[in-house]
Amino acid sequence: MPLKLLVTVKRVEDPESRIRARPDGTGIVTDGVNYKMNPFDEIAVEEALRLKEKHGGEVVVASIGGAAAMVELRAALAMGADRGLLVRHDGALDPGVGSALLQALVAQERPDLVLLGKQAIDDDQNQTGQMLAARLGWPQATFASKKESLESEAEQKKQPGVVLAADGGRALVVREVDGGVETLDVALPAVVTVDLRLNKPRFASLPGIMKAKKKEVREIPAASLGVELAPAVVVRRLFDPPRRQAGVKVADVAELWTRLHAEAKVL
């Protein structure tokens, strides 16, 4: 059964860039900061592509943001996604608003599976997938992972971690939980959020990049989706975390032990 997969793609600050708060606390310093696709979303795109390669179907990538987010959508298309949706929204976004906008997209697209990064590495919220599942009344499998290591043969062969039942109506998802890995069996349609260890995303090949230019991306004004756009999580101020002060250099192992034992009381 061919699958229809919807994957979210968020434009975020490149984790290699140095991030710090503006002195007035209203945002971060953006000078010299690069942008890229949220690394967790990259894993979600990869998983969707593998599912499509195995089962057939269509991978639709969606982003919410300004015109610049087109770059990340094109990057996902270059990896191999089929078409894109850009919900144009220039203001602040919180998981509540984001999940409501995605709910509206799901109503239009009717995917079998929505794949999201477990969190975006800018606001680090880790909520949108769960909220989307709740809004849709769909099952959720968060923090999808894989039992095999990323060096395993299955990974080399680019097998998806999410395993579909033969009838296509259910999916097995391995997820990372505290202290182990849990396997859930979810009925489709469902929402899956992905963790780091699910796969190693491919990078866009040059032919993929050239083909992506010609793929369709539909722009949808956020206001047209009938969603209340005022965020309920409001950032009042940003600041740099207190810098750790360099401590003391100890002379030898004996002093280290004494300090850890008697002074810091952690041993």
Binding site: E13, P15, R18, I19, R20, A21, I28, I121, D122, D123, D124, P231, A232, V233, V234, V235, R236, R237, L238, F239, D240, P241
Partner: peptide
């Protein structure tokens, strides 16, 4: 009540207000 939470992998701390 404002809540302090890490953003950008803890490179920045945000003070957020929850509405509702």
């Amino acid at each position: 009540i404002l809540l302090r939470r890490p953003m950008w992998a803890g490179n920045v701390i945000a003070e957020v207000e929850l509405r509702g």
